[in-house]
């Protein structure tokens, strides 16, 4: 059994630098194939991570190891700190004046809260997709090229824009109108545009903060398909309030409950079929939250 991986705090710090990433990423068999092998290389690792907004604690002593090139879902009731956790990873919390972070968050072994880390440089390795689509009032092309522009990646821009749009499953729909405004697209298309924008500079990680919550069911299912595909290339961390969505698309699931506490983190199937904690079971089955 995978008992010792139940709670991350009990997990030994893995030999993440030495274990090679297995070829079997488990992408295709996410849904049904039982629990994953846990020898996957850890890309992101939190140790005693706490966040305070002023006096209020939004995240308390989170320990977690997020594997590379898989989809990790973060679920929990509203106000449980799941978005806060996501925004710790690329230090978007730095933009909130009152926010204070304690503990460590390691990206490939490097603590991103070290003094010598420039959050701007960090964010260039991590793409982010937000709750409601927020394309810039620019052309579709300029939207996708935005990251390349600000990161000074000036080579083959057109080619990279095309590739990103293709990966975001949007190219077919917009190929003839790359110069029209991103705001003219439908909500679902806008969100895929934002995903294209996030992946164009080729980051290692993509963070998604409830990316489908503002979309209709058809647009949502397109985004979900896309997220599963993205995990072939990228490490995806997705916050969602929709448990079915987490069950459908993720390999791993982290359950945050009130007070910013990470209660359980495990393979998605395990979480939804046989959670370790009663509180998690209550939440999953809808008795709470």
């Amino acid at each position: 059994m995978t008992n010792e991986q139940m709670t991350p705090s009990e997990t030994e710090p893995t030999d993440d630098q030495t274990t090679p990433t297995p070829g079997t990423d488990g992408l295709a068999d996410t849904a049904d194939s039982g629990w994953e092998t846990t020898t996957d290389r850890t890309l992101l690792e939190a140790r005693d991570l706490s966040v305070y907004y002023g006096e209020e604690q939004a995240l308390s002593d989170v320990d977690i190891e997020i594997p590379e090139k898989q989809v990790t879902a973060v679920i929990g009731p509203s106000g449980c700190g799941k978005s806060t956790f996501l925004r710790c990873i690329n230090r978007m919390n730095d933009l909130v004046d009152s926010a204070r972070v304690e503990g460590e968050l390691r990206f490939d072994g490097k603590n991103v809260y070290d003094d010598d880390v420039d959050p701007v440089a960090l964010r260039r390795k991590i793409g982010m997709v937000f709750q409601s689509p927020n394309p810039f009032p620019k052309s579709i092309r300029d939207n996708v090229a935005y990251g390349l522009k600000v990161q000074g990646k000036k080579d083959n821009v057109d080619e990279k824009v095309h590739t990103a749009l293709e990966r975001a499953a949007l190219l077919d729909e917009v190929e003839d109108q790359l110069d029209s405004s991103g705001l003219d697209l439908s909500g679902g298309q806008q969100q895929r545009l934002c995903i294209a924008r996030a992946i164009a500079p080729d980051p290692d990680v993509i963070l998604m903060d409830e990316p489908a919550s503002a979309l209709d069911p058809i647009a949502t299912s397109k985004i979900e398909d896309l997220i599963e595909d993205l995990a072939e290339e990228y490490t995806v961390v997705i916050v969602t309030h929709n448990m079915q969505q987490a069950a459908r698309i993720s390999d791993k699931t982290a359950v945050f409950l009130t007070g910013g506490e990470l209660v359980e983190f495990d393979d998605t199937d395990k979480i939804f079929e046989n959670p370790e904690h009663d509180r998690v079971e209550d939440y999953i089955t809808g008795k709470f939250g």
Binding site: N90, M92, M128, F136, G147, A198
Partner: peptide, 13 residues
């Protein structure tokens, strides 16, 4: 603010 967030999220200064 979502516009600023999008930009910062892309690694813009």
């Amino acid at each position: 603010d979502s516009q600023r967030q999008a930009s910062y999220g892309m690694g813009a200064t």
